[in-house]
Nucleic acid binder design. Structure first.
Lengths: 205, 205
DNA sequence: ATGATGTTTAACCGAAAAGTTAAACTTTTC
DNA sequence: GAAAAGTTTAACTTTTCGGTTAAACATCAT
């Protein structure tokens, strides 16, 4: 190995950028090669085909996005703390890779089976465990009756959607890039509060 | 007109299906033609180019999705009622066209300007008006201090994300199509409640 | 009927993009 | 230092896909 697979690294970085931004169908191998300052043939030397290169990028993307979810929510800490930790790590990764959630969601939509295969390393999210934690809080009078799936959907919705729909929201609201970014930053502190509000027993106002 | 533009209707339906599922880049004119049981030349006879056909589909999609948002939120009713109405109409349209939100979000991401042009019939969302309504509730002691943009993001997040990420959530949770659908149905009643919980003044528990 | 207009088709074209080849160059190994 | 293995390139081939053409077919007014 001459260049100590620095080339491979550059390819993956470039491919990431292009695939994240344009999706599989919109991505061009030439652009990826250009981004890595190599030519197309070398690209095919390292990764036989567009399909394979994409698989590498997609797996890495899922790997980057999903484990925090599983790990934080699977731990044995109090639920409110899990929420905070999840939002924090999620915002960290996504502020660094703003197109990541949209990319994964879109490609999953395009081809659900690929994802199943990528993720099906045995470990699905432990919904039952989450439900148990929720029920326990309910019986202690701390939480209202809450379905685990709905809880999870709320957490992900409030965290992910503003990134996925960033462009749309900017257009709809006439907010600039910078202003919108600030709005997103603020949510890091707000989402956990909202999630807890949603969990609290209903106050009959 | 011999067939009373039934052909055009079939084309648009087919194009909708293909574009919604694969996006602009992933869609093939041949597939759209096949779906409408005609051949490619006839497709180009009705819609000069892929671009134009896409524009027709995209405009219709935006038209289907956005006005409810603007209208309900722009009305003069109490905010909590606006929320209920919005969620209700939103769920009606989206349960009928589950791929609509994902499609719009993705294509907007691909080309933000097109959307600006499609929607820029002068009417952007009246964020100031929404903020005024929120502030008024705050001063009456009914709501906590709330930023209009955050409010809007929450409403859309909780409503739209579960549809956009349907495939991903199903894979992650091992829920079947039908079960997930039921979960979504339940949210129609739940989202307004949550939105109100998030608005209420903070209870210092 | 017939010609004008509108509709539909099969066959073709050209550009773009994925993928291949063969040769040159570099590095490693013995 | 020479052969082997690994790396890089320019030029080429193939495939895919959007778009066109010209001719056949249908419909309808006069």
């Amino acid at each position: 190995m001459a260049t100590e697979n620095e080339t491979e690294y550059r390819i993956l970085r470039s491919a990431e950028e292009v695939f994240y931004r344009h999706g599989y169908d919109g991505a061009k191998m030439q652009d990826i090669a250009d981004g890595a300052s190599i030519n197309k043939a070398l690209l095919h030397y390292y990764f036989r085909s567009k399909e394979r290169l994409f698989d590498a990028v997609f797996s890495a993307a899922v790997e980057r996005l999903v484990p925090p979810l599983f790990l934080t929510l699977g731990s044995e800490k109090p639920l409110t703390q899990k929420i905070r930790e999840f939002v924090d790590t999620y915002f960290d990764t996504v502020l660094e890779h703003p197109f990541l959630p949209g990319f994964v969601v879109h490609e999953m939509h395009r081809n659900p089976d690929r994802f199943r295969k990528t993720i099906a390393s045995g470990n699905l999210l432990d919904l039952e465990g989450l439900q148990a934690a929720l029920d326990e809080g309910t019986s202690r009078g701390e939480f209202r009756q809450t379905d685990a799936m709905q809880f999870l959907l709320n957490l992900l919705s409030l965290s992910a959607f503003p990134f996925i729909a960033a462009r749309a929201m900017q257009a709809i609201s006439a907010l600039g890039e910078e202003e919108y970014r600030r709005t997103l930053d603020e949510r890091r502190a707000l989402v956990p509060v909202w999630m807890e509000d949603i969990l609290k027993p209903c106050t009959l106002s």
